[in-house]
């Protein structure tokens, strides 16, 4: 309950923040994961850079067919933003499934993404949306896809001194659904499936499935996507596709769910997410 001492800086510009991060400081966004770890002394950074006062990081706006969301936009801002709700409902739906009200009021998109908890909700949606993540370091911005960004549990492509600046998601007209099995104690996703489906002429023209919680890192279930594309999207088609979602995955196992059960849940919930998404697809 009592973190170790640290230096604290709360810059008001992105440039200042990047400079401090370059000096070995740790970024503090919403703090929803970092602060509990510091209280338990599982993390003891020497220098925290609070991103909370950098206005240029807190926005949600539409630009040339995509939504640009600043790193410090809170889950609640994403969940309640009319722009996100209408133009990228999958992200809003996923944000609403995170933690609890208080966590969503404080927790940020950028913080959650950078933390890369294998049971976090956002990564499933970002994978399914083929989101782009803009990173800022001393050398300026670079943009990576969600598929590249998430490497392993709590591991991303972020370099030392680099931070998440922005997340870009497409304006999305697919039918979507996020379906989650919460771990009963923590509420984190034991399995979370984000699904997007586009239909035309009675056929599935595009399917995207993002998976979180199942393995050490979120991923896109491309085999399942391919199996669904070009079909009518019938219940049988969905079942066939969903069955592929966990194939070959090295599933996590703990007291809450064995690897086999997690895989099974991934299949079931992929089916459910696809059915829901299909129902919403035009």
């Amino acid at each position: 309950m009592f973190p170790q001492t640290f230096d604290y800086t709360a810059p008001t510009t992105l440039d200042e923040a990047v400079k401090l991060l370059g000096g070995g400081a740790k970024a503090l966004a919403g703090g929803m994961s970092l602060i509990p770890m510091m209280k338990l002394r599982l993390a003891s950074p020497e220098h925290l850079v609070d991103l909370g006062r950098i206005k240029e990081l807190n926005y949600i706006r539409e630009e040339s067919g995509a939504l640009h969301i600043g790193a410090t936009a809170t889950h609640y801002a994403v969940e309640s933003s009319p722009l996100v709700r209408t133009k990228c409902p999958l992200l809003a739906e996923t944000a609403a499934a995170i933690g609890d009200v208080q966590v969503r009021n404080m927790g940020t998109l950028g913080g959650a993404v950078a933390h890369a908890d294998p049971s976090a909700d956002y990564p499933a949606a970002l994978q399914a949306l083929e989101a782009k993540i803009v990173l800022r370091g001393a050398g300026g911005d670079r943009t990576v896809s969600a598929a590249e960004f998430f490497v392993d549990a709590f591991t991303t492509v972020l370099n030392e001194g680099e931070m998440v600046r922005e997340v870009i998601v497409p304006v999305d007209t697919s039918g979507v659904s996020y379906q989650k099995v919460p771990q009963p104690a923590s509420g984190f996703a034991m399995v979370g499936i984000a699904a997007r489906v586009k239909k035309a002429g009675g056929k599935v023209t595009e399917a995207r499935i993002g998976v979180t919680g199942l393995t050490n890192s979120s991923f896109r279930a491309t085999a399942a996507e391919k199996a669904l594309e070009g079909t009518n999207g019938s219940a049988a088609d969905i079942q066939k596709a969903a069955a592929l979602v966990a194939q070959g995955s090295d599933a996590n196992s703990d007291i809450h769910a064995s690897a086999d059960y997690r895989k099974h849940l991934a299949v079931v919930y992929t089916g459910r997410a696809l059915i829901a998404a299909m129902g919403r697809a035009q």
Binding site: G31, I35, N105
Partner: peptide, 21 residues
Amino acid sequence: GACTIELDGKAVKSCTMFAVQ
């Protein structure tokens, strides 16, 4: 949630925040 307060109109857990923030 026993530490929940309202901060600028939003319910937050005051144990998961530094006073300086």
